[in-house]
Nucleic acid binder design. Sequence first.
DNA 1: TAAACGAAGCAACCAATGGTTAGAACGTGC
DNA 2: GCACGTTCTAACCATTGGTTGCTTCGTTTA
Lengths: 211, 211
Amino acid sequence: MRVSKGVVTKKNIEDAAAKLFSSQGFNRVTMREIAKEAGCSHTLIYMHYKDKEDLLRQMTCPLLEQLESMLSELALDPVLTPPDRLRLVSKEVIAFCLFQRSATMILFQSAVPVALTEEQEDCDKLRSRIFGRLREAVIGCLSADRMDSAQTLYRIYLFMLHGMIMSFLDPPGDPTEQLYRASRLIDRCVDILLGGPESWLPPSIQKSLPY
Amino acid sequence: MRVSKGVVTKKNIEDAAAKLFSSQGFNRVTMREIAKEAGCSHTLIYMHYKDKEDLLRQMTCPLLEQLESMLSELALDPVLTPPDRLRLVSKEVIAFCLFQRSATMILFQSAVPVALTEEQEDCDKLRSRIFGRLREAVIGCLSADRMDSAQTLYRIYLFMLHGMIMSFLDPPGDPTEQLYRASRLIDRCVDILLGGPESWLPPSIQKSLPY
DNA sequence: TAAACGAAGCAACCAATGGTTAGAACGTGC
DNA sequence: GCACGTTCTAACCATTGGTTGCTTCGTTTA
């Protein structure tokens, strides 16, 4: 006896796809390669997923949920100062993108089709919640007299985050080492974003994260 | 009598490609569409250009030269304060990317093949010079006691610039209007990057540019 | 004038790819 | 054991980037 064969194969497919996507990137992997790795015909993949992007989205959705719950925890942690929270939140997002390289295009995609399927909608809601967390984390750092700049600051923060992630993803490398470098940079980004003359002191060797 | 027919056709091809690339983006345009627009067979394109990316590169190179000479002029303009120079330089780059959408991937590409052809090398040198100008413009704004942070600040500036351009390119829109919005944002970015409490005053309505 | 040559140009072709279709194999309930 | 729905695949299709071999045609040269 065995569990429904389809379920097993679906996991096979996602494992194979995850392996190939993360090592070669979404665009360079073909459906046939995924199928070969998963041990089935590429046709079978289309039974479970509408198309290649749907496969990526369905793989990515649970990971986005994990990310969102991480960010929620950070949002609720009463010990953190707002800037530290922003730093940690940023590092979570960066870690997510570096380790789930192809998931980045789901997280940061902006061209959403006109009509969304339920699954696309789920994914989209998740993204909204995640970006909402980022927004909170940025705005939580602002004093009352800066509130009128909140939206602009948030957007600029996203530019930095997005640009940094793009820069680290494009020449693929070891994610762990990249994350280490990115962590130090994002600390500086937050310093700069929040202003203040102390941002120019040599950075205290702060290793608040296991990265 | 007429000029060498090949030359004319080469211009036809680049015009057709420019039109299609800017309206649909590099990836969505096929060589056959370019050929049809140019009024020749797609085979002919391969007589002049090694492949699709070579076509884009050869089209983009003269534009990069224009950009570089613009930036040189700004670098030499003695009237500008360093922050104003950085603002203008940034706006030139943004305008370039918004109006030459597909050229952006040449400008910001980081994965350079191991062995470069002469033309690739030319293009690469141009890119280096352009980024050198940006670096100068950033570093020119820093006081002596911040010099040790120069490289980090430059990188973060690039993240912002890159992220902003990505964000404006992805949902394609009217470049002129996008440039207007991006201009205001980059002013804020420069304020933030250079720090100082005055960066939080409501922005003076500065329209130093025709954009 | 005519043969030779080289460039300009194209139809036909190829391999790879994302995606579809018709039908085979197989387990399950009646 | 038979009908039915699910799982799965081989064969197929259209599109794409890119190649090959051939034709056309203006120019040079004898």
